[in-house]
Design a protein around this nucleic acid. Structure first.
Lengths: 344, 344
DNA sequence: CTGAAAGCGCTTACAG
DNA sequence: CTGAAAGCGCTTACAG
């Protein structure tokens, strides 16, 4: 391993001068800088980050909290995986590395201790464990944080515009002539906006068309995976067999719901129309006709990295940044004839 | 931030003594150790890894090379995502953190430079870029490496027993009475064993039953995603419409292949039987009847972490470790009546 | 524009 | 069993 002292010896300059040349700061003659840079290159010099981190207190490490209790897919989660691919790329371009924070590290240190241990400079909270009490402390722990799925006091959230998407779903159903429309949700948790917001927007959308949303038409599934969607749809449909359409908060649930509907002999969209959420490729192959919403994972990741880098630089972020989700209309919504006659 | 000097002041011992107590090494009276540990706990002391790394040359960091040019799914790759979930858990239990190695870090340092920069202690090569020349240098770079998909000179490979799986596929088809069986492969690359080995085993399996494999029955798709499977199946089937079965090297390709077959009016398995590979959940929802092989991601990850930790400790690893892939028989293979009559 | 000194927080021999 | 000294590789004021 070659150090700045080796470079100092070779070039005849002092270590601090080598340091300045390498880092491009301080006043140095161009000539000095050039010779030092050339020597470094020739010697194949690579800085030692541990030493840098120790003296500067800057580790160039971004901690990532990624737990996936809800879907149990970890890296393979339909939103989180793609988001991380992009986020990783963005921060690497800025000279940072990803460091996964963990609770079972070194027999159970907290996230924050893990951060201190590694001098982590910023935290991306992709998704925490439900109701983790440590989340509340993150906003004031002194380390810049950005969240991409959960609302945490004092932490900037970059999330899809779920309400608008909900409205769009209502609009799509309404314009196709549906009036009895179910809502299949997921556990409503205060800090996890996705399900609640999609419902809010959906309800507001219906009301804007003069349709009151009947609470009986709403069913919240017990979890986020397809089995729960199956059970939820069963409960909903047995209670309200008159619905002609259902908006489901995510595609996994929609897949389970459709499975149930198909099993009892219903066809989609002829008997019942469905709109999902996520544009989940794992569902899409099975249900290529499913209309859904695509969360802009690249955009969310890019904004999240910008906000975080900005906060590290001392510039505060807004409390929440919304990213539009794109409606992807395929063929799971039946258009009623009378509507077509109305000129649609 | 509280340091060992603070602890030293508080307890009246010297910094080295604090260090020994904290790390459990060196000779210390139990009493001293206890008081120091208690003081550390009360003060909420967390070690500083940068300082530790600088003085010990041990970063407790495992570099990960994860590129996914083949499937373009990154973290969402059917094998790699799950493998990483488990690998991450394993090494965290051992006090290590994951560090993704990247070529576009800090305007383009090599993987090895990235490792030196961070003092990475070991490298997990989940999947490299095809024909990356840097791979050849990894085996002799001085940093312990383990690979989970690619053969690299001097690097321990932990991979599925693809040949046995290929034989099992041949057996399954043969026992069901098939004799004209196609093989749908992927680009054969020398260092990437999956496709070649599955083919080898498959061919050997057929031959063990006295069936010569007709080279015309083999078609290698241009890539690993479903569109390539569609095209590959088309080419194969147009050339050999007499096949009654096809073994496909991965489920994504199998999905594309089935899509083609369905489109031209064939039914599966009545007209043509299919066996895939990967037990890819994203395909499974669409084709729940697909018989396939499940790679034991947890086992591969666990063995890879063991090998790597072992190498870091100075114990050499075997050149290759094989992990059985489990055949999952569902309903995509037709059993011919005459076979049943033969007593199967 | 360049360098000597001190420090970041920890550990490793080496004394005692 | 415990501590004084030196060092890991880098950077930050501060002189000059």
């Amino acid at each position: 391993m070659i150090t700045i002292y080796d470079l100092a010896k070779q070039t005849g300059f002092s270590a601090p001068t080598i340091s300045k040349a390498l880092n491009g700061n301080g006043k140095l003659s161009d000539e000095t800088r050039q010779t030092i840079l050339a020597a470094a290159k020739e010697a194949g010099y690579t800085a030692n980050m541990a030493a840098k981190a120790l003296s500067t207190k800057h580790s160039r490490l971004i901690g990532v909290i990624l737990e996936d209790v809800a879907m149990r897919r970890g890296f393979e989660h339909p939103l989180f995986g793609g988001l991380l691919n992009k986020f990783r790329h963005e921060i690497e371009m800025a000279g940072y590395d990803l460091l996964f924070l963990s609770k079972h590290f070194n027999d159970g240190m907290s996230y924050i201790d893990h951060c201190r241990y590694r001098d982590v400079e910023g935290i991306l909270i992709v998704n925490p464990i439900d109701d983790d009490p440590e989340m509340k402390t993150l906003g004031s722990c002194g380390i810049p944080c950005v969240s991409t799925n959960e609302f945490i006091p004092g932490v900037c959230a970059v999330v899809s515009d779920n309400e608008s998407a909900g409205k769009t779903a209502a609009q799509a159903f309404f314009e196709a002539g549906h009036t009895k429309i179910g809502f299949l949700g997921a556990p409503f948790r205060e800090n996890s906006p996705a399900a609640i917001e999609r419902f809010k927007g959906f309800k507001a959308g219906l009301e804007s068309y003069g349709l009151d949303f009947d609470e009986r038409y709403m069913e919240n599934c017990a979890a986020w995976w397809d089995g729960a969607g199956y059970d939820g749809m069963k409960a909903l449909y047995e209670r309200c067999p008159d619905i002609t359409a259902v908006f489901v908060v995510c595609d996994s649930l929609a897949f389970g719901a459709m499975k149930y509907l198909l099993e009892i002999g219903k066809s989609i969209p002829d008997d019942i129309s469905v709109i999902g959420f996520d544009d989940d490729t794992s569902v899409l192959k099975a249900a290529p006709m499913l209309s859904t919403f695509r969360q802009d994972r690249d955009k969310i990741a890019q904004l999240a990295s910008e906000m975080l880098l900005q906060e590290i630089a001392g510039i505060p972020s807004p409390e929440v940044v919304r990213v539009p989700a794109q409606f992807i209309s395929r063929n799971s919504v039946r258009r009623f004839a009378r509507v077509l006659q109305m000129g649609y």
